[in-house]
Amino acid sequence: MCDTCGCSTEGGAVLRKPGQSDYHVHVNEHEHAHGEHHSHEHGDHHHEGSGRKVVLEQDVLQKNNLLAERNRGYFEARKIFALNFLSSPGSGKTSLLEKIIPALQQCFPVAVIEGDQQTTNDADRIQALGVPVIQINTGSGCHLDALMVNRAMKELEMQNNSLLCIENVGNLVCPALFDLGEALKVVIISVTEGDDKPLKYPTMFHEADICILNKIDLLPYVEFDAAKCRENAMRVNHHLEWFELSAKTGEGLAALREWLEGKMAQH
């Protein structure tokens, strides 16, 4: 059974590097022993069938959250500014990174962690830019978690004072719940989707810090109301930093770049 989705028996995430087909590291998520039997000798005492209540009051995601905090501490110590990019598949996360990284690299080093169920296609595209990149293949998993990022960041050659872009698995639902240790969450929507997406998937927009509307070059050809979309996003989260751009034409990219440079300077 998969450790994430329950879809198959081969669920563990795997780290890969572009161009190194024999490089392959397994991320073991859950190490609990199934079917373990232990014998337990009892004395003469009996509890008359009634159990004992043990109070835990523990966050269900505690393990992930604690590990995410460790990642966050590592990033802080090395002054690495980590962004978690989230969206549905096909809204242009990788294209945006391809477009913006060459400009950002003029100012500071950039590294990328790519998350996908399969293939190193995205990591191959990023590697072509000449930045350190590692691919996490989640197998049947629907999101990245703090452990996968923890393993990946140890394999990635990151410089101090750099920007780390973590591209999550394309999915607007599950990744919202899993803290990776990032400084900020960036959610991307494109104009070929619906302008009510923030209302349909509120958890993600509620968790995000930045919202990017991509593919605005296609606005004349689609029924998408950018102002309405922004209003919907703000209804879910009035703290959202909002950007509209086209990763294809480069329109609107300067504003995001300047904002990121400002954040890096403060960081």
Binding site: D3, H32, L56, Q58, K63, N64
Partner: peptide
């Protein structure tokens, strides 16, 4: 479908404590 990994986290946490 993140409920599966969450269910596993719960089992892991309670089992550890129960042991």
């Amino acid at each position: 479908m993140h409920e599966m990994s969450i269910a596993l986290s719960i089992v892991e946490a309670v089992e550890e404590r129960a042991r």
